[in-house]
Design a binder for these strands. Structure first.
Lengths: 105, 105
DNA sequence: TGTAATACATCGTAACACGAGGTATTACCT
DNA sequence: AGGTAATACCTCGTGTTACGATGTATTACA
């Protein structure tokens, strides 16, 4: 999929991936694979950004002697998802405009 | 609307705006206003980019003693719109993933 | 022994949207 | 005549972002 079209959508995907249950980097990438492929460098950039925006919080925990950073969505993160529903309406309009067969019909 | 979500969509909007009839900068902005607001600096960047990608051609014509640059879509430009239909399917999947109420339902 | 998987991270780059600013003409109002 | 809005084009710099390349370290398995 076109990289530009993915922009902005990836933040939402990551938020959705931790929405119902805390998750960690590696798992997020695997969970998102059916919907959007993203590299590790992209994901960690996004996680940092979302943390700075207070849309998620981080907690470090040990799992099988290995450290994992678990990400937890905040109220702001949930609100961002809600706002996306409105943005989606506008994107639908754009989609209709772009893909309609003929302007005169 | 979120600037990042618009990314990539704007190119498509511009192509759609000249799809059925050649158009020029100022008119494109006005035609797109109901769907996506974009500044002149953004538009001219996009037009240059699409011209370089051979998705449109340019022709200068005089109108009421004033020069206008008319943009005409090419076969590549039309194909780009067709490819968007496929990209949209993936975006729909992402939308469903992000906005579904609960993972377990 | 090596290689894949797990798990984290940084750096540099290219693409992109946009604000700020610039030039020039036409049209309208007072 | 003077001012302002609309039309019509353009450039430059900046901040955001996705991603490839690269690095570190552990566990699991052939």
């Amino acid at each position: 999929m076109d990289a530009q079209l993915k922009r902005g959508l990836l933040d939402l995907c990551v938020l959705a991936a931790i929405k119902d249950e805390d998750s960690y980097g590696y798992k997020i990438i695997k969970d998102l694979k059916p919907y959007a492929e993203l590299s590790e460098s992209t994901l960690y950039t996004i996680l940092k950004r979302l943390e700075a925006a207070e849309m998620l919080t981080v907690r470090t925990a040990e799992h099988d002697g290995r450290l994992r950073k678990y990400y937890h969505i905040t109220a702001e993160g949930l609100q961002r998802i809600e706002e996306f529903r409105l943005d989606w309406e506008e994107m639908l309009k754009i989609h209709r405009f772009v893909t309609k067969e003929d302007k005169d019909l």
